[in-house]
Computed example of a mutant assay.
Amino acid sequence: METVNSLDELSFEEAMEKLETIVSRLENGDVPLETAIELFQEGMKLSNLCGGKLELVERKIEMLIESDQGFHKKPFAPANEDKGE
């Protein structure tokens, strides 16, 4: 299994690919229990890593909004945050 330090160095795409592989192996159900537990733990680390990378990107995104005064910058807010969900 990967160590946390090497997981942190993965790109979002690499982490997602590894996560998809783990999910596929677990869905097949042909891995021993000990291996399944290790795969699940690594999958959770990868999931958290991907979530963190997405949050970081969301904070960096700015949207241009057109108003009567022209265009202005507005920090990115996902649709569910705009609705107070």
Results as ranks from 00 to 15, higher is better:
Glu62Ser: 10
Met44Phe: 11
Arg59Gly: 10
Ser6Lys: 14
Glu17Met: 11
Thr35Glu: 13
Lys74Ala: 13
Thr21Glu: 09
Leu7Ala: 11
Lys73Gly: 03
Asp68Pro: 00
Phe76Tyr: 11
Lys45Asn: 15
Pro78Ile: 01
Gly51Arg: 10
Glu42Ser: 15
Asn5Asp: 10
Pro32Cys: 13
Asp8Glu: 07
Pro78Trp: 01
Val4Met: 02
Lys73Asn: 07
Leu7Lys: 02
Glu62Gln: 14
Leu10Pro: 00
Leu26Asp: 03
Phe12Pro: 00
Ser67Thr: 08
Val57Asp: 01
Asn48Lys: 11
Ile65Ala: 06
Gly51Trp: 03
Gly43Met: 12
Gly29Ser: 12
Glu55Cys: 03
Lys60Pro: 05
Glu81Gln: 08
Met44Val: 15
Ser67Arg: 14
Ile61Lys: 08
Lys74Ile: 07
Leu26Tyr: 09
Asp8Ile: 03
Thr3Asp: 12
Asn80Phe: 01
Phe71Glu: 05
Lys74Met: 15
Thr35Ser: 14
Met16Trp: 13
Ile61Ser: 04
Phe71Met: 11
His72Trp: 12
Glu85Thr: 04
Pro75Glu: 06
Glu2Asp: 11
Arg25Trp: 05
Leu49Glu: 00
Lys73His: 08
Lys18Thr: 11
Glu58Asp: 13
Met44Pro: 04
Gly84Gln: 04
Glu34His: 05
Met16Lys: 13
Met16Ala: 02
Cys50Val: 10
Lys74Thr: 10
Glu20Lys: 14
Asn5Lys: 11
Glu17Gln: 13
Glu58Arg: 14
Arg25Lys: 10
Leu46Phe: 05
Lys53Tyr: 00
Ala79Trp: 08
Glu17Ile: 12
Glu27Cys: 02
Gly52Cys: 01
Arg25Thr: 08
Lys53Asp: 00
Asp30Phe: 07
Lys73Ala: 07
Leu33Met: 14
Phe12Lys: 01
Glu55Gly: 03
Leu64Phe: 14
Leu64Asp: 03
Glu27Trp: 06
Ala77Gln: 08
Asn28Gly: 07
Ser47Phe: 06
Val23Phe: 02
Leu49Trp: 00
Met1Tyr: 02
Asn28Thr: 09
Leu64Arg: 14
Lys60Thr: 09
Ile22Gln: 04
Lys74Gln: 15
Ile22Gly: 11
Arg25Gly: 05
